[in-house]
Amino acid sequence: MPVNSATERKKSLRQVIAEHNSDPGALLDILREAQEIHGYLSTAVMEEIADQLGIPVSRVYGVATFYTLLATEPKGKHIIRVCESPPCHIRGAVNILETLQEVLGVNPGETTEDKKFTLELTSCLGVCGVAPAMMIGDQVYGNLTPERVKEILKTYE
């Protein structure tokens, strides 16, 4: 849950860094927790982390942009991750993605104008038994059909 006030967020971030003893080895964990607090990793947040850990901010940014679960730009309220791995592909993931693109009016990597949804592609979610699958936030949806996708999206209206 993103924390609300700016000062509170700053405090929480410092606390997270302190809990990890300002250890650069824990950068990945710190970034994930910072993202929980701030919603995404802004340059200012990454600079704060770099400063506290004593490493160049370029390295923090390089790490943040390497991992798909870390975001350096603000995202929509709900992040939709569509699995495009081969097991989902052969069970029709293309149709799912097309449906989402059509309903939301955005391409993968983009956020809807109302900032409600960000559409992303993801590698295997490990729920191939119910392929094709997607995640909205932490919730996994499997055995998708274009119709089910539309119904699921309605529940987020």
Binding site: D23, G25, L28, F66, L70
Partner: peptide, 20 residues
């Protein structure tokens, strides 16, 4: 925990990741 990178299943990439 990892943060979303298939390549980290490779053992030396995993170690790099553990080193932040």
């Amino acid at each position: 925990t990892g943060a979303g990178a298939y390549v980290c299943g490779e053992e030396t990439a995993l170690i790099e990741s553990l080193e932040g």
